[in-house]
Computed example of a mutant assay.
Amino acid sequence: MTRNDMYGGADCTDDELREHRAMPTLSDLPTPAAPDCRVVELRQYTLYPGRRDALIELFDREFVDAQEAQGINVLGQFRDLDDADRFVWLRGFADMAARGDALAAFYGGRAWAEHRDAANATMADSDDVLLLRPAWRGAALPAQARGAARGDGLLRAQIFHLKEAAGDELLALCRRAACPQARVQAWYVTESALNNFPRLPLREGEPVLVGLAFFDDALAGEGWANELDTLLQPWQRRPAQALRLAPTSRSALQA
């Protein structure tokens, strides 16, 4: 939506690497049920000062149901606790073909036509978008992460900017990652398919690894984030981005 329009552990074993290599490729997997989508967008919007609550009220009221009606899974929308002018949200699709069809239907539909001017008026930039896929079978956010509000909890998102696309050794290490304080963890990597809805720009050519973890306490998870950052240093081309995200009242993903 543009304005115009691991915990660480030892080195992974040979058996773990063989297990990862034996995993089916993404194209071999059946289309998963929501929210375990093959394709996920992580969208970060920079808003004009003081406009975030206005966008959230509009988004939650007008854009969630309208997108879901077109087959888009609006996985969650959040306030960035460290930036009062940033709005972050996630949406998922069954696959790339479904993404193209669903986005065309939504952005060509009534809800967007009626409310796009009001939405765009809140946004200084909406082009910070990563196209992702689950890092392995079962790495996506599970269904039980949706819908159960947990008061003052939060979602931590660690975005690791990689020197190259995530490989076997890195993903095997991530599969072993565990944080006892987190209720849910999930892992995503860059989806390399070409943007099939070019009206909405993406950050292309940037291999990333994204770790998500839900905590009941808004102060929890700092150690998890720091440990991950240290553990994954050999693979990073620049410092990771750390987000502390509080779900809106309408967010399907609740911490």
Results as ranks from 00 to 15, higher is better:
Leu103Glu: 02
Ala213Trp: 02
Ser27Leu: 11
Gly8Thr: 12
Leu81Asp: 13
Arg146Glu: 08
Gln181Thr: 07
Leu131Cys: 13
Leu245Ile: 11
Arg21Met: 09
Ser249Glu: 13
Ala119Arg: 13
Lys163Asp: 11
Met23Tyr: 03
Leu55Ile: 06
Asn195His: 04
Tyr48Phe: 15
Thr25Met: 06
Cys179Met: 01
Tyr188Ala: 09
Glu206Val: 15
Arg110Asn: 08
Pro134Asn: 09
Phe78Thr: 04
Ala84Ile: 04
Arg61His: 07
Pro49Cys: 03
Ala118Gln: 14
Glu206Met: 12
Ala34Gly: 04
Arg238Leu: 05
Phe78Glu: 02
Phe214Arg: 08
Arg79His: 14
Glu204Pro: 00
Ser249Asp: 13
Asp83Asn: 12
Ala178Thr: 09
Gln185Thr: 15
Ala193Cys: 10
Asp83Gly: 05
Leu17Ala: 13
Leu154Ile: 13
Gln236Ile: 05
Ala149Lys: 04
Ala118Arg: 15
Thr190Tyr: 01
Trp235Ala: 15
Ala111Cys: 08
Ala178Tyr: 12
Ala240Val: 09
Arg110Ala: 14
Gly147Ser: 07
Leu26His: 08
Leu245Cys: 05
Arg38Val: 02
Ala182Asn: 05
Cys37Ala: 10
Gly92Pro: 03
Ala255Met: 05
Asp117Val: 15
Leu219Glu: 13
Gln254Lys: 08
Arg237Asp: 12
Arg237Thr: 14
Leu103Val: 04
Ala66Cys: 06
Arg237Leu: 11
Gly92Phe: 05
Ala218Val: 06
Leu162Cys: 12
Ala182Phe: 08
Ala166Glu: 03
Ile159Met: 11
Leu219Ala: 13
Leu155Cys: 08
Asp85Gly: 10
Leu130Gly: 02
Asn4Pro: 10
Cys174Asn: 01
Glu164Thr: 14
Ala165Tyr: 10
Arg250Ala: 15
Leu42Tyr: 14
Ala246Lys: 14
Ala186Leu: 06
Ala104Gly: 08
Glu41Phe: 01
Glu222Trp: 02
Leu130Pro: 01
Leu75Glu: 00
Gly8Lys: 11
Gly223Met: 09
Leu200Trp: 10
Phe215Met: 06
Ala102Phe: 00
Tyr7Trp: 01
Asp5Ser: 09
Phe215Trp: 04
Cys174Val: 13
Leu212Pro: 05
His20Ser: 06
Phe160Thr: 06
Asp65Phe: 00
Asp36Arg: 12
Glu114Thr: 13
Leu171Gln: 01
Leu243Ala: 07
Ser249Lys: 12
Gly223Asn: 12
Phe197Val: 09
Ala145Arg: 07
Pro247Gly: 02
Pro180Cys: 03
Cys12Ala: 11
Arg18Leu: 14
Glu169Met: 09
Gln70Asp: 08
Val210Trp: 02
Ala186Pro: 04
Asp14Glu: 15
Pro234Ser: 10
Ala119Ile: 07
Arg156Thr: 01
Pro49His: 06
Leu75Val: 10
Leu132Thr: 06
Ala252Lys: 10
Val64Asp: 00
Glu227Arg: 07
Gly147Thr: 06
Ile159Lys: 02
Pro32Cys: 05
Ala143Phe: 10
Gln44Met: 15
Phe78Asp: 03
Cys12Trp: 00
Ala118Phe: 01
Gly211Gln: 12
Leu202Arg: 11
Thr248Lys: 10
Leu209Gln: 07
Ala105Val: 03
Leu155Glu: 04
Leu29Ala: 09
Val184Phe: 15
Ser192Cys: 06
Glu227Leu: 10
Met123Ser: 03
Ala10Val: 09
Ile159Glu: 08
Lys163Glu: 14
Pro207Ala: 11
